[in-house]
Simulated scan of single mutants.
Amino acid sequence: MRKIHLIILLFLKSVCYSQDFKIPEIEFQEIGDKQNPYVKLLNLKDENSLIIKIGFESYWAGGIHSNLIVFQNDGNVVRYNVFFPKDNLKKIEISKKRIKKEKIPDFWILINSVAKENKLNIDKDKLNIERIEYEDGTVLKYSTRSDCVDESFEITQGNKKTYFSSYDPLYQIKQKNSGFEERQKLVDLIDEVENLIKIKSN
């Protein structure tokens, strides 16, 4: 009798798990011919996984330090740290990171909030403006700082993706240069992912 109850309990947990953790509908900006490259890179069995990638690139780093969160259709979430070197002769470095089981719901809350709150509504044309436009119509072009960090956010599924990138966004926001509002949206999105990774995993 106890075995039957245990089987029923496990079944109900499995059903609830799959219902609660479902990949939401995302409005992607691009549809291409090729499938998600990260599926092959990470050797994922679920080819229709939804993947969030935040990246940080600088001249001195020699490549892009990235954090990838993989949302699978079975309700599981997997995380990776990946370094993409600029030198094509060097290998991509991949390390899988542990997410505590009890923390997985927090990752689903994140992706659902991204979809429901339209957090991908960012005008990418304004993320790297190098000028200030005044109300009287005059334009002042300014130079960007060197050796700073380029921050990026990418979300992909199948052959669809949305990609944002901004160079030295925090400084541009502080100076309130043209497009700083869109830069702020991107920084907030990246920070939300980064803070979740730091708090909820490992």
Score class of each variant (00 low, 15 high):
M1I: 08
K3E: 10
I4G: 04
I4Q: 12
I4K: 03
K13H: 10
S14L: 08
Q19F: 12
P24Q: 04
E27T: 07
I31F: 01
G32D: 10
G32I: 02
G32S: 13
N36L: 00
L41A: 12
N43S: 09
I51F: 00
E57M: 02
S58T: 15
W60L: 08
S66F: 02
N73H: 08
D74E: 04
G75L: 01
R79K: 06
N81S: 07
L89F: 15
K91V: 04
E93K: 04
I94E: 10
I94S: 05
S95Q: 15
R98L: 11
K100P: 01
K101D: 08
K101Q: 14
K101Y: 12
K103T: 13
L110P: 10
I111Q: 03
S113W: 00
L120C: 13
L120Y: 12
N121K: 04
N128Q: 11
I129T: 11
I129G: 05
E135M: 03
G137I: 03
K141W: 14
Y142G: 09
S143M: 01
C148S: 14
E151H: 01
E151M: 02
E151A: 00
E154P: 00
I155H: 09
I155T: 14
Y163Q: 12
S166C: 05
S166N: 07
Y171E: 11
Q172K: 14
K176L: 04
Q184W: 00
Q184N: 11
L186H: 05
L186A: 05
L186I: 05
D191T: 08
V193R: 02
E194W: 01
I199Y: 07
S201R: 00
